[in-house]
C-alpha cells in the first residue's frame, strides 16, 4: 500500500473502534507512546513483586502463604504478558530491561513504598490491585490489539488479587484491638499513594490528549480516580476503617465522594527517584538479574550442545 493509504487505514481502524495489530502501519508517536506505556506497565508488575515477596516467609498461616505466593507468581505472569505484547512493536525484551535497570524507564510510584506489616498485604490487594483493576478494565478497550488482549487476561486474574486482599482486611478488623490498629495504620499509609497511581490531574497530564485521540487511553486520570474512590470508600466503611482524609465528603448532588488535595510534591518526588525505596527496588532487581547470569548461561550452553548433537546424529 502507498503511505497515504496506510495512514488512512490506520485512522479508519481507530475511528471504527477496531484494533491496530502488530504488522499494521502506525504513526511513530503511536508506537513510542505504546512502548512507553506497556513497558512501564510490565516493569510495574515485575517490581511489584518485591513489596509482597517481603511477606511470603512471614505470612501468618500456611494458606495465606500459598495465596501470597500465587499472587506474586501472577504478577510475574502479568509482566510476561505485557513484555510479550510490547515486543510485538519491535522492541526487544533485553532493551526494555536495560531501560528499567538504568532508570530510563519507570514503573508505578506505588511500589516505592515499604510494606511494614502483614496488614499491608491486605491493603495492597484491596487498594493497589483495586486501583489497577479500575485502570485495566478500561484498558481492555485500548486500540492496540496485543495490549488489549493482555489486559483481558490480566483482568481475569486480578480480581482474585483484590478479593484476597479484602479478605485479609476482614480478618484483621474482626480480630484483636492490635489487629484492628494494624489495619487502620495500613490504610493510613496506602490510601494516598493508591490515589496517586492514577497519575496527575488531567490538566497536568501531558500525554492524555493524544493518547485519548489514539484510543490508547479511554478514560482520563481524574475520571478513573473518581471511579476508584466511589467504589472504595464504602468498602472502607464496611470494614469500620477511617479514610485518612478529613475533607472526604459525599456530594449528594453528583453522587460522588469528594476528596482533599493529593500531595503532588510527594508524587513527583517519588516519580523522580526520591520515594522511600526507589534505589533499593532497582538495586534488588539488577542484583537478581546479575545473580541469575550463570543459570541463563548454563541453559543456553545446554541448548547449544543439544542442537549440535542433533545435527551430528
Amino acid at each position: 500500500m502507498d503511505p497515504d493509504a496506510e495512514e488512512q487505514m490506520f485512522a479508519a481502524v481507530i475511528a471504527a473502534d477496531e484494533k491496530i495489530e502488530p504488522r499494521d502501519w502506525m504513526p511513530d508517536g503511536y508506537r513510542s507512546s505504546l512502548i512507553r506505556q506497556m513497558a512501564q506497565h510490565a516493569h510495574s508488575e515485575v517490581i511489584g513483586m518485591q513489596p509482597e515477596a517481603n511477606w511470603i516467609l512471614r505470612a501468618p498461616t500456611l494458606l495465606r502463604k500459598a495465596i501470597l505466593i500465587a499472587k506474586v507468581q501472577d504478577e510475574a505472569g502479568h509482566g510476561l504478558y505485557l513484555y510479550s505484547a510490547a515486543e510485538t512493536l519491535g522492541v526487544s525484551r533485553d532493551e526494555l530491561q536495560r531501560l528499567l535497570h538504568s532508570g530510563r524507564q519507570k514503573y508505578s510510584s506505588i511500589f516505592n513504598y515499604p510494606t511494614l506489616s502483614w496488614a499491608d498485604m491486605g491493603t495492597i490487594g484491596w487498594l493497589v490491585d483495586g486501583a489497577a483493576i479500575v485502570n485495566q478494565i478500561v484498558l481492555q478497550r485500548t486500540s492496540y490489539g496485543p495490549y488489549s488482549r493482555a489486559m483481558v487476561k490480566i483482568c481475569k486474574e486480578e480480581s482474585f488479587h483484590a478479593r484476597q486482599g479484602y479478605s485479609i482486611m476482614m480478618t484483621l478488623v474482626d480480630g484483636s484491638e492490635e489487629q484492628k490498629a494494624m489495619a487502620q495504620d495500613a490504610i493510613d499509609r496506602w490510601w494516598w499513594p493508591a490515589l496517586m497511581m492514577f497519575g496527575p490531574h488531567d490538566s497536568e497530564s501531558s500525554h492524555t490528549e493524544q493518547s485519548m485521540a489514539w484510543k490508547i487511553k479511554r478514560i482520563t486520570n481524574d475520571d478513573l480516580r473518581q471511579m476508584f474512590i466511589d467504589q472504595t470508600v464504602p468498602q472502607a466503611h464496611y470494614l469500620g476503617l477511617t479514610i485518612p482524609d478529613p475533607e472526604l465528603a459525599f456530594d449528594e448532588e453528583t453522587g460522588h465522594w469528594n476528596i482533599g488535595e493529593i500531595d503532588w510534591e510527594e508524587f513527583w518526588a517519588t516519580i523522580q527517584g526520591d520515594g522511600p525505596l526507589n534505589r533499593e527496588r532497582i538495586a534488588h532487581k539488577t542484583k537478581a538479574w546479575d545473580d541469575g547470569r550463570w543459570v541463563r548461561e548454563g541453559a543456553s550452553g545446554y541448548a547449544a550442545k543439544n542442537r549440535s548433537l542433533d545435527k551430528s546424529a
Binding site: S32, I35, R36, Q37, Q40, H41, S44, E45, G48, E75, H78, V91, S92, E95, L99, R104, Q105, K106, Y107, S108, S109, I110, V128, D129, A131, A132, V134, N135, Q136, L139, M197, G199, P200, E204, S205, S206, H207, S211, K217, W268, I271, Q272
Partner: peptide, 17 residues
C-alpha cells in the same frame, strides 16, 4: 497493576533501539 507514569519535569526522552 497499572500505570502510566507521567513525564517528570526534566525527564529525558528515551532513545529506544
Amino acid at each position: 497493576m497499572s500505570y502510566e507514569v507521567p513525564v517528570a519535569p526534566g525527564e529525558e526522552q528515551q532513545d529506544i533501539e
